[in-house]
Design a protein around this nucleic acid. Sequence first.
DNA 1: CCGCGCAAGCTGCGATCGCAGATCAAAGAT
DNA 2: ATCTTTGATCTGCGATCGCAGCTTGCGCGG
Lengths: 236, 236
Amino acid sequence: MTMQGVSDHPSGGAKTPLRRDSLQQQIYERLRNGLVSGAFLPGETVSSRGLAQSLAVSAMPVREALTRLTAEGALELTSSRTLRVRVLTPADFDEVTTIRVELEGMAAERAAGQVTEEDVARVRALHGDLTAAAETADADRYLAANAAFHSGIYAAARWPLLLSMIQRLWLTVGPSIRASVPDHLHMATSMRFHDAAVEAIGARDAEALRAAIVGDIETAAKDIRAFLAEEAGATD
Amino acid sequence: MTMQGVSDHPSGGAKTPLRRDSLQQQIYERLRNGLVSGAFLPGETVSSRGLAQSLAVSAMPVREALTRLTAEGALELTSSRTLRVRVLTPADFDEVTTIRVELEGMAAERAAGQVTEEDVARVRALHGDLTAAAETADADRYLAANAAFHSGIYAAARWPLLLSMIQRLWLTVGPSIRASVPDHLHMATSMRFHDAAVEAIGARDAEALRAAIVGDIETAAKDIRAFLAEEAGATD
DNA sequence: CCGCGCAAGCTGCGATCGCAGATCAAAGAT
DNA sequence: ATCTTTGATCTGCGATCGCAGCTTGCGCGG
Protein backbone atom coordinates (compact mmCIF):
# COMPACT_ATOMS: atom_id res chain seq x y z
CA MET A 1 0.00 0.00 0.00
CA THR A 2 2.92 2.27 0.42
CA MET A 3 3.80 2.34 -3.23
CA GLN A 4 0.77 4.20 -4.55
CA GLY A 5 1.58 7.27 -6.58
CA VAL A 6 5.22 6.46 -7.13
CA SER A 7 4.49 5.17 -10.59
CA ASP A 8 4.63 8.01 -13.05
CA HIS A 9 7.98 9.00 -14.37
CA PRO A 10 7.19 12.12 -16.41
CA SER A 11 8.90 10.67 -19.45
CA GLY A 12 7.62 7.12 -19.82
CA GLY A 13 4.49 6.01 -21.59
CA ALA A 14 1.27 5.28 -19.79
CA LYS A 15 0.71 1.66 -18.91
CA THR A 16 4.29 0.37 -19.15
CA PRO A 17 4.40 -1.82 -16.05
CA LEU A 18 8.16 -2.01 -15.69
CA ARG A 19 10.62 -2.43 -18.53
CA ARG A 20 13.55 -0.51 -19.91
CA ASP A 21 16.96 -0.85 -18.33
CA SER A 22 17.71 -3.15 -15.48
CA LEU A 23 14.91 -3.79 -13.05
CA GLN A 24 16.86 -2.56 -10.09
CA GLN A 25 17.56 0.68 -11.89
CA GLN A 26 13.90 1.26 -12.65
CA ILE A 27 12.90 0.39 -9.11
CA TYR A 28 15.57 2.68 -7.75
CA GLU A 29 14.30 5.55 -9.87
CA ARG A 30 10.72 4.94 -8.84
CA LEU A 31 11.62 4.94 -5.20
CA ARG A 32 13.78 7.99 -5.56
CA ASN A 33 10.98 9.75 -7.29
CA GLY A 34 8.65 8.79 -4.50
CA LEU A 35 11.04 9.94 -1.81
CA VAL A 36 11.39 13.33 -3.44
CA SER A 37 7.73 13.68 -4.29
CA GLY A 38 6.41 13.00 -0.85
CA ALA A 39 5.23 9.44 -1.16
CA PHE A 40 7.12 8.50 1.97
CA LEU A 41 7.25 9.90 5.45
CA PRO A 42 10.25 9.82 7.81
CA GLY A 43 10.24 6.68 9.91
CA GLU A 44 7.96 4.84 7.56
CA THR A 45 8.95 1.21 7.38
CA VAL A 46 9.89 -0.34 4.05
CA SER A 47 10.43 -4.02 3.39
CA SER A 48 12.04 -5.53 0.35
CA ARG A 49 9.66 -8.46 0.13
CA GLY A 50 6.63 -6.26 0.54
CA LEU A 51 7.77 -3.87 -2.15
CA ALA A 52 8.70 -6.76 -4.41
CA GLN A 53 5.23 -8.20 -4.11
CA SER A 54 3.49 -4.92 -4.87
CA LEU A 55 5.76 -4.44 -7.88
CA ALA A 56 5.30 -8.04 -9.00
CA VAL A 57 9.00 -8.79 -9.17
CA SER A 58 11.30 -10.89 -7.06
CA ALA A 59 12.95 -9.56 -3.95
CA MET A 60 16.34 -9.41 -5.58
CA PRO A 61 16.27 -6.21 -7.64
CA VAL A 62 14.26 -4.47 -4.94
CA ARG A 63 16.93 -5.36 -2.42
CA GLU A 64 19.67 -3.85 -4.50
CA ALA A 65 17.69 -0.66 -4.99
CA LEU A 66 17.04 -0.42 -1.26
CA THR A 67 20.67 -1.11 -0.51
CA ARG A 68 21.67 1.79 -2.70
CA LEU A 69 19.17 4.08 -1.04
CA THR A 70 20.44 3.01 2.35
CA ALA A 71 24.02 3.68 1.34
CA GLU A 72 22.96 7.12 0.15
CA GLY A 73 21.38 7.95 3.46
CA ALA A 74 17.77 7.98 2.31
CA LEU A 75 16.88 4.87 4.29
CA GLU A 76 18.31 3.48 7.48
CA LEU A 77 18.56 0.06 9.01
CA THR A 78 17.15 -0.14 12.51
CA SER A 79 18.58 -2.35 15.20
CA SER A 80 15.82 -4.85 14.61
CA ARG A 81 16.92 -5.43 11.02
CA THR A 82 14.08 -3.35 9.72
CA LEU A 83 14.48 -0.82 6.95
CA ARG A 84 12.77 2.50 7.32
CA VAL A 85 12.80 5.97 5.81
CA ARG A 86 15.52 7.91 7.52
CA VAL A 87 14.52 10.30 10.26
CA LEU A 88 16.59 13.46 10.18
CA THR A 89 17.64 15.22 13.33
CA PRO A 90 17.77 19.02 13.19
CA ALA A 91 21.56 18.72 13.06
CA ASP A 92 21.35 16.33 10.11
CA PHE A 93 19.04 18.72 8.37
CA ASP A 94 21.36 21.68 8.92
CA GLU A 95 24.22 19.74 7.40
CA VAL A 96 22.23 18.82 4.32
CA THR A 97 20.99 22.36 3.93
CA THR A 98 24.45 23.87 4.12
CA ILE A 99 25.75 21.48 1.47
CA ARG A 100 22.67 22.06 -0.67
CA VAL A 101 23.23 25.81 -0.63
CA GLU A 102 26.78 25.32 -1.78
CA LEU A 103 26.12 22.74 -4.47
CA GLU A 104 22.85 24.06 -5.80
CA GLY A 105 24.24 27.56 -5.75
CA MET A 106 27.16 26.37 -7.82
CA ALA A 107 24.89 24.58 -10.25
CA ALA A 108 22.64 27.61 -10.60
CA GLU A 109 25.51 29.94 -11.27
CA ARG A 110 27.00 27.66 -13.86
CA ALA A 111 23.63 27.02 -15.46
CA ALA A 112 23.02 30.71 -15.97
CA GLY A 113 26.30 30.98 -17.80
CA GLN A 114 25.42 28.51 -20.50
CA VAL A 115 21.69 28.04 -20.85
CA THR A 116 20.35 27.54 -24.32
CA GLU A 117 17.04 28.84 -25.56
CA GLU A 118 15.66 25.34 -25.21
CA ASP A 119 16.74 25.22 -21.60
CA VAL A 120 14.93 28.45 -20.88
CA ALA A 121 11.79 27.21 -22.57
CA ARG A 122 11.94 23.95 -20.66
CA VAL A 123 12.41 25.70 -17.34
CA ARG A 124 9.52 28.01 -18.14
CA ALA A 125 7.31 25.03 -18.83
CA LEU A 126 8.34 23.40 -15.57
CA HIS A 127 7.63 26.67 -13.83
CA GLY A 128 4.15 26.58 -15.32
CA ASP A 129 3.58 23.10 -13.93
CA LEU A 130 4.84 24.21 -10.58
CA THR A 131 2.59 27.26 -10.50
CA ALA A 132 -0.40 25.16 -11.42
CA ALA A 133 0.45 22.65 -8.70
CA ALA A 134 0.83 25.43 -6.13
CA GLU A 135 -2.63 26.72 -6.96
CA THR A 136 -4.26 23.36 -6.43
CA ALA A 137 -2.48 23.14 -3.07
CA ASP A 138 -1.87 19.44 -3.72
CA ALA A 139 1.23 18.83 -1.63
CA ASP A 140 2.49 15.75 -3.45
CA ARG A 141 2.01 17.24 -6.85
CA TYR A 142 3.69 20.43 -5.70
CA LEU A 143 6.69 18.59 -4.34
CA ALA A 144 7.14 16.60 -7.52
CA ALA A 145 6.84 19.72 -9.67
CA ASN A 146 9.23 21.56 -7.39
CA ALA A 147 11.85 18.85 -7.71
CA ALA A 148 11.42 18.79 -11.47
CA PHE A 149 11.76 22.55 -11.65
CA HIS A 150 14.97 22.66 -9.67
CA SER A 151 16.46 19.72 -11.51
CA GLY A 152 15.51 21.38 -14.77
CA ILE A 153 17.58 24.39 -13.88
CA TYR A 154 20.56 22.42 -12.65
CA ALA A 155 20.50 20.21 -15.72
CA ALA A 156 21.32 23.29 -17.77
CA ALA A 157 24.71 23.37 -16.04
CA ARG A 158 25.47 20.11 -17.87
CA TRP A 159 27.48 18.69 -15.04
CA PRO A 160 26.05 15.24 -14.48
CA LEU A 161 28.06 14.46 -11.39
CA LEU A 162 27.02 17.68 -9.71
CA LEU A 163 23.41 16.99 -10.60
CA SER A 164 23.57 13.49 -9.17
CA MET A 165 25.09 14.73 -5.95
CA ILE A 166 22.35 17.32 -5.59
CA GLN A 167 19.72 14.71 -6.23
CA ARG A 168 21.21 12.55 -3.54
CA LEU A 169 20.73 15.39 -1.10
CA TRP A 170 17.11 15.82 -2.16
CA LEU A 171 16.62 12.14 -1.52
CA THR A 172 17.58 12.65 2.09
CA VAL A 173 15.51 15.74 2.81
CA GLY A 174 12.49 14.81 0.69
CA PRO A 175 10.56 12.93 3.36
CA SER A 176 11.23 15.58 5.99
CA ILE A 177 9.98 18.27 3.65
CA ARG A 178 6.93 16.18 2.98
CA ALA A 179 6.31 15.81 6.68
CA SER A 180 6.50 19.52 7.32
CA VAL A 181 4.87 20.97 4.24
CA PRO A 182 1.23 20.36 5.14
CA ASP A 183 1.79 22.53 8.18
CA HIS A 184 2.97 25.80 6.87
CA LEU A 185 2.15 25.55 3.21
CA HIS A 186 4.94 27.88 2.39
CA MET A 187 4.31 27.46 -1.29
CA ALA A 188 3.32 31.09 -1.72
CA THR A 189 6.53 32.57 -0.36
CA SER A 190 8.51 29.93 -2.18
CA MET A 191 6.95 30.86 -5.48
CA ARG A 192 8.40 34.31 -5.13
CA PHE A 193 11.89 32.83 -5.41
CA HIS A 194 10.79 30.58 -8.24
CA ASP A 195 9.53 33.55 -10.20
CA ALA A 196 12.81 35.32 -9.61
CA ALA A 197 14.73 32.25 -10.76
CA VAL A 198 12.83 32.06 -14.02
CA GLU A 199 13.46 35.71 -14.67
CA ALA A 200 17.15 35.37 -13.83
CA ILE A 201 17.69 32.39 -16.07
CA GLY A 202 15.98 34.17 -18.91
CA ALA A 203 18.33 37.10 -18.40
CA ARG A 204 21.38 34.84 -18.02
CA ASP A 205 22.04 36.56 -14.72
CA ALA A 206 24.18 34.12 -12.77
CA GLU A 207 24.28 36.13 -9.59
CA ALA A 208 20.52 36.65 -9.49
CA LEU A 209 19.85 33.00 -10.23
CA ARG A 210 22.12 31.89 -7.45
CA ALA A 211 20.46 34.31 -5.08
CA ALA A 212 17.01 33.05 -5.99
CA ILE A 213 17.97 29.41 -5.51
CA VAL A 214 19.79 30.03 -2.26
CA GLY A 215 16.94 32.15 -1.00
CA ASP A 216 14.46 29.44 -1.85
CA ILE A 217 16.45 26.79 -0.04
CA GLU A 218 17.13 28.83 3.05
CA THR A 219 13.64 30.20 3.38
CA ALA A 220 12.08 26.78 3.16
CA ALA A 221 14.74 25.35 5.43
CA LYS A 222 13.86 27.78 8.17
CA ASP A 223 10.30 26.45 8.37
CA ILE A 224 11.30 22.83 8.04
CA ARG A 225 13.98 23.11 10.64
CA ALA A 226 11.51 24.59 13.08
CA PHE A 227 9.17 21.71 12.39
CA LEU A 228 11.89 19.14 12.97
CA ALA A 229 13.00 20.78 16.19
CA GLU A 230 9.45 20.83 17.48
CA GLU A 231 8.97 17.22 16.51
CA ALA A 232 12.22 16.27 18.21
CA GLY A 233 11.04 18.13 21.29
CA ALA A 234 7.99 15.95 21.52
CA THR A 235 9.00 12.59 22.97
CA ASP A 236 7.70 10.84 19.86
CA MET B 1 44.92 -11.39 -9.61
CA THR B 2 43.54 -7.94 -9.56
CA MET B 3 42.73 -8.00 -5.87
CA GLN B 4 46.25 -8.14 -4.52
CA GLY B 5 47.04 -5.39 -2.07
CA VAL B 6 43.48 -4.35 -1.39
CA SER B 7 43.43 -6.51 1.67
CA ASP B 8 44.67 -4.51 4.58
CA HIS B 9 42.21 -2.23 6.23
CA PRO B 10 44.39 -0.27 8.65
CA SER B 11 42.11 -1.08 11.54
CA GLY B 12 41.42 -4.82 11.33
CA GLY B 13 43.53 -7.56 12.79
CA ALA B 14 45.89 -9.62 10.74
CA LYS B 15 44.41 -12.83 9.46
CA THR B 16 40.71 -11.99 9.71
CA PRO B 17 39.53 -13.30 6.36
CA LEU B 18 36.26 -11.41 6.19
CA ARG B 19 33.82 -10.92 9.04
CA ARG B 20 32.20 -8.01 10.80
CA ASP B 21 29.17 -6.30 9.32
CA SER B 22 27.51 -7.47 6.20
CA LEU B 23 29.72 -9.05 3.60
CA GLN B 24 28.76 -6.59 0.93
CA GLN B 25 29.68 -3.73 3.21
CA GLN B 26 33.11 -5.15 3.89
CA ILE B 27 33.69 -5.86 0.25
CA TYR B 28 32.54 -2.39 -0.67
CA GLU B 29 34.97 -0.87 1.79
CA ARG B 30 37.82 -2.99 0.55
CA LEU B 31 37.19 -2.03 -3.01
CA ARG B 32 36.79 1.61 -2.13
CA ASN B 33 40.02 1.49 -0.26
CA GLY B 34 41.66 -0.07 -3.26
CA LEU B 35 40.28 2.49 -5.66
CA VAL B 36 41.56 5.35 -3.55
CA SER B 37 44.89 3.73 -2.79
CA GLY B 38 45.86 3.01 -6.33
CA ALA B 39 45.12 -0.70 -6.59
CA PHE B 40 43.12 -0.13 -9.76
CA LEU B 41 43.84 1.64 -12.99
CA PRO B 42 41.29 3.37 -15.21
CA GLY B 43 39.83 0.98 -17.74
CA GLU B 44 40.84 -2.07 -15.75
CA THR B 45 38.18 -4.73 -16.05
CA VAL B 46 36.46 -6.07 -12.97
CA SER B 47 34.16 -9.07 -12.82
CA SER B 48 31.89 -10.00 -9.98
CA ARG B 49 32.50 -13.72 -10.26
CA GLY B 50 36.21 -13.28 -10.48
CA LEU B 51 36.31 -11.06 -7.44
CA ALA B 52 34.00 -13.40 -5.59
CA GLN B 53 36.31 -16.30 -6.21
CA SER B 54 39.41 -14.46 -5.06
CA LEU B 55 37.55 -13.37 -1.94
CA ALA B 56 36.12 -16.85 -1.37
CA VAL B 57 32.54 -15.69 -1.17
CA SER B 58 29.59 -16.05 -3.47
CA ALA B 59 28.96 -13.64 -6.30
CA MET B 60 26.00 -12.08 -4.54
CA PRO B 61 27.57 -9.65 -2.05
CA VAL B 62 30.27 -8.76 -4.54
CA ARG B 63 27.62 -7.85 -7.06
CA GLU B 64 25.89 -5.50 -4.68
CA ALA B 65 29.16 -3.82 -3.81
CA LEU B 66 30.00 -3.39 -7.47
CA THR B 67 26.52 -2.08 -8.17
CA ARG B 68 27.00 0.58 -5.57
CA LEU B 69 30.36 1.56 -6.96
CA THR B 70 28.87 1.75 -10.42
CA ALA B 71 26.04 3.94 -9.21
CA GLU B 72 28.59 6.20 -7.57
CA GLY B 73 30.50 6.60 -10.78
CA ALA B 74 33.61 4.70 -9.77
CA LEU B 75 32.96 1.88 -12.21
CA GLU B 76 31.16 1.84 -15.51
CA LEU B 77 29.34 -0.77 -17.52
CA THR B 78 30.62 -1.15 -21.05
CA SER B 79 28.42 -1.95 -23.99
CA SER B 80 29.60 -5.53 -23.85
CA ARG B 81 28.17 -6.01 -20.34
CA THR B 82 31.60 -5.80 -18.85
CA LEU B 83 32.35 -3.81 -15.73
CA ARG B 84 35.49 -1.74 -15.69
CA VAL B 85 37.10 1.03 -13.69
CA ARG B 86 35.74 4.28 -15.00
CA VAL B 87 37.90 6.25 -17.41
CA LEU B 88 37.65 9.96 -16.80
CA THR B 89 37.72 12.45 -19.63
CA PRO B 90 39.45 15.75 -18.94
CA ALA B 91 36.00 17.34 -18.72
CA ASP B 92 34.91 14.77 -16.15
CA PHE B 93 38.02 15.44 -14.18
CA ASP B 94 37.46 19.19 -14.22
CA GLU B 95 33.97 18.71 -12.87
CA VAL B 96 35.13 16.50 -10.04
CA THR B 97 37.94 18.87 -9.20
CA THR B 98 35.66 21.90 -9.03
CA ILE B 99 33.27 20.11 -6.71
CA ARG B 100 36.14 18.80 -4.63
CA VAL B 101 37.50 22.31 -4.12
CA GLU B 102 34.13 23.46 -2.92
CA LEU B 103 33.33 20.53 -0.64
CA GLU B 104 36.79 19.87 0.74
CA GLY B 105 37.28 23.58 1.23
CA MET B 106 34.09 23.69 3.22
CA ALA B 107 35.10 20.68 5.29
CA ALA B 108 38.53 22.13 5.98
CA GLU B 109 37.14 25.45 7.07
CA ARG B 110 34.64 23.86 9.38
CA ALA B 111 37.19 21.41 10.73
CA ALA B 112 39.52 24.22 11.74
CA GLY B 113 36.73 25.79 13.71
CA GLN B 114 36.19 22.87 16.00
CA VAL B 115 39.18 20.59 16.13
CA THR B 116 39.98 19.00 19.44
CA GLU B 117 43.46 18.31 20.71
CA GLU B 118 42.94 14.68 19.83
CA ASP B 119 42.07 15.63 16.29
CA VAL B 120 45.26 17.59 15.95
CA ALA B 121 47.32 14.74 17.34
CA ARG B 122 45.67 12.30 15.00
CA VAL B 123 46.24 14.51 11.97
CA ARG B 124 49.86 14.96 12.99
CA ALA B 125 50.28 11.20 13.16
CA LEU B 126 48.72 10.77 9.76
CA HIS B 127 51.00 13.48 8.45
CA GLY B 128 53.92 11.49 9.79
CA ASP B 129 52.78 8.41 7.91
CA LEU B 130 52.35 10.46 4.79
CA THR B 131 55.80 11.98 5.06
CA ALA B 132 57.34 8.57 5.56
CA ALA B 133 55.48 7.23 2.55
CA ALA B 134 56.60 10.14 0.42
CA GLU B 135 60.20 9.45 1.30
CA THR B 136 60.01 5.84 0.21
CA ALA B 137 58.45 7.00 -3.07
CA ASP B 138 56.09 4.03 -2.91
CA ALA B 139 53.17 5.33 -4.96
CA ASP B 140 50.49 3.06 -3.54
CA ARG B 141 51.51 3.62 0.02
CA TYR B 142 51.67 7.34 -0.61
CA LEU B 143 48.21 7.42 -2.10
CA ALA B 144 46.71 5.48 0.78
CA ALA B 145 48.42 7.72 3.33
CA ASN B 146 47.34 10.79 1.44
CA ALA B 147 43.71 9.71 1.46
CA ALA B 148 43.90 8.91 5.17
CA PHE B 149 45.47 12.29 5.89
CA HIS B 150 42.80 14.25 4.06
CA SER B 151 39.97 12.19 5.52
CA GLY B 152 41.49 12.68 8.94
CA ILE B 153 41.23 16.43 8.56
CA TYR B 154 37.70 16.37 7.19
CA ALA B 155 36.56 14.01 9.90
CA ALA B 156 37.28 16.76 12.40
CA ALA B 157 34.44 18.75 10.84
CA ARG B 158 32.11 16.06 12.21
CA TRP B 159 29.77 16.24 9.30
CA PRO B 160 29.35 12.64 8.20
CA LEU B 161 27.32 13.40 5.10
CA LEU B 162 29.87 15.88 3.85
CA LEU B 163 32.62 13.38 4.50
CA SER B 164 30.83 10.66 2.60
CA MET B 165 30.25 12.93 -0.36
CA ILE B 166 33.91 13.86 -0.44
CA GLN B 167 34.89 10.23 -0.29
CA ARG B 168 32.64 9.48 -3.20
CA LEU B 169 34.55 12.04 -5.22
CA TRP B 170 37.85 10.48 -4.24
CA LEU B 171 36.51 7.18 -5.43
CA THR B 172 36.07 8.60 -8.88
CA VAL B 173 39.41 10.34 -9.23
CA GLY B 174 41.49 7.75 -7.39
CA PRO B 175 42.36 5.57 -10.36
CA SER B 176 43.18 8.56 -12.55
CA ILE B 177 45.49 9.92 -9.90
CA ARG B 178 47.09 6.55 -9.65
CA ALA B 179 47.61 6.44 -13.40
CA SER B 180 49.30 9.81 -13.49
CA VAL B 181 51.29 9.82 -10.29
CA PRO B 182 54.19 7.62 -11.39
CA ASP B 183 54.90 10.17 -14.08
CA HIS B 184 55.49 13.38 -12.30
CA LEU B 185 55.91 12.24 -8.74
CA HIS B 186 54.58 15.50 -7.50
CA MET B 187 54.77 14.30 -3.96
CA ALA B 188 57.38 16.87 -3.04
CA THR B 189 55.39 19.92 -4.05
CA SER B 190 52.29 18.37 -2.57
CA MET B 191 53.97 17.92 0.78
CA ARG B 192 54.41 21.67 0.97
CA PHE B 193 50.64 22.05 1.17
CA HIS B 194 50.38 19.20 3.61
CA ASP B 195 52.86 20.85 5.93
CA ALA B 196 50.89 24.07 5.71
CA ALA B 197 47.68 22.20 6.48
CA VAL B 198 49.12 20.64 9.62
CA GLU B 199 50.35 23.99 10.79
CA ALA B 200 46.99 25.64 10.05
CA ILE B 201 44.98 23.02 11.87
CA GLY B 202 47.24 23.31 14.87
CA ALA B 203 46.64 27.07 14.86
CA ARG B 204 42.89 26.66 14.27
CA ASP B 205 43.29 28.95 11.30
CA ALA B 206 40.29 28.17 9.09
CA GLU B 207 41.33 30.39 6.23
CA ALA B 208 44.84 29.01 6.08
CA LEU B 209 43.60 25.44 6.27
CA ARG B 210 41.19 25.99 3.45
CA ALA B 211 43.91 27.59 1.39
CA ALA B 212 46.27 24.69 1.99
CA ILE B 213 43.66 22.11 1.02
CA VAL B 214 42.50 23.99 -2.04
CA GLY B 215 46.08 24.59 -3.07
CA ASP B 216 46.87 20.92 -2.72
CA ILE B 217 43.90 19.89 -4.81
CA GLU B 218 44.43 22.41 -7.56
CA THR B 219 48.15 21.93 -7.82
CA ALA B 220 47.83 18.19 -8.14
CA ALA B 221 44.89 18.59 -10.50
CA LYS B 222 46.95 20.64 -12.88
CA ASP B 223 49.41 17.79 -13.41
CA ILE B 224 46.75 15.12 -13.55
CA ARG B 225 44.65 17.04 -16.00
CA ALA B 226 47.63 17.45 -18.29
CA PHE B 227 48.24 13.73 -18.09
CA LEU B 228 44.62 12.94 -18.93
CA ALA B 229 44.57 15.36 -21.84
CA GLU B 230 47.74 13.85 -23.24
CA GLU B 231 46.36 10.37 -22.82
CA ALA B 232 43.11 11.40 -24.51
CA GLY B 233 45.16 12.86 -27.33
CA ALA B 234 46.81 9.52 -27.95
CA THR B 235 44.35 7.26 -29.76
CA ASP B 236 44.51 4.87 -26.82
C1' DC C 1 47.88 -21.22 -45.57
C1' DC C 2 44.08 -18.02 -44.91
C1' DG C 3 39.35 -16.76 -43.59
C1' DC C 4 34.81 -17.74 -42.05
C1' DG C 5 31.43 -19.70 -38.65
C1' DC C 6 29.74 -21.94 -34.80
C1' DA C 7 30.02 -23.32 -30.15
C1' DA C 8 31.82 -22.90 -25.55
C1' DG C 9 33.02 -19.65 -22.30
C1' DC C 10 32.70 -15.32 -20.43
C1' DT C 11 29.58 -11.28 -18.62
C1' DG C 12 25.62 -9.05 -15.61
C1' DC C 13 20.88 -9.81 -13.97
C1' DG C 14 16.86 -12.03 -12.00
C1' DA C 15 14.50 -15.81 -9.31
C1' DT C 16 14.36 -18.98 -5.67
C1' DC C 17 15.72 -21.11 -1.54
C1' DG C 18 17.63 -21.29 3.15
C1' DC C 19 19.46 -19.19 7.42
C1' DA C 20 20.01 -16.36 11.64
C1' DG C 21 18.12 -12.90 14.33
C1' DA C 22 14.23 -10.20 16.11
C1' DT C 23 9.34 -9.16 16.91
C1' DC C 24 4.83 -10.32 18.24
C1' DA C 25 1.07 -13.03 19.72
C1' DA C 26 -1.12 -16.55 21.88
C1' DA C 27 -1.07 -20.02 25.28
C1' DG C 28 0.31 -21.78 29.79
C1' DA C 29 1.79 -21.20 34.68
C1' DT C 30 1.51 -18.95 39.00
C1' DA D 1 -5.76 -11.45 36.14
C1' DT D 2 -0.93 -10.87 35.28
C1' DC D 3 3.45 -12.48 33.98
C1' DT D 4 6.23 -15.58 31.43
C1' DT D 5 7.49 -18.38 27.72
C1' DT D 6 7.43 -20.28 23.28
C1' DG D 7 6.60 -20.75 18.37
C1' DA D 8 4.95 -18.65 13.98
C1' DT D 9 6.31 -15.08 11.14
C1' DC D 10 8.39 -11.24 9.98
C1' DT D 11 13.17 -8.97 8.69
C1' DG D 12 17.77 -8.64 5.81
C1' DC D 13 21.56 -11.40 3.87
C1' DG D 14 24.03 -15.00 1.41
C1' DA D 15 24.25 -19.02 -1.88
C1' DT D 16 22.94 -21.25 -5.93
C1' DC D 17 20.89 -21.79 -10.25
C1' DG D 18 19.28 -20.32 -14.88
C1' DC D 19 18.93 -17.01 -18.71
C1' DA D 20 20.22 -13.82 -22.46
C1' DG D 21 23.68 -11.39 -24.61
C1' DC D 22 28.52 -10.78 -26.03
C1' DT D 23 33.48 -12.32 -26.85
C1' DT D 24 36.65 -15.50 -28.02
C1' DG D 25 38.91 -19.38 -29.99
C1' DC D 26 38.90 -23.73 -32.15
C1' DG D 27 37.82 -26.24 -36.23
C1' DC D 28 36.14 -26.63 -40.82
C1' DG D 29 35.88 -25.17 -45.70
C1' DG D 30 38.11 -22.88 -49.27
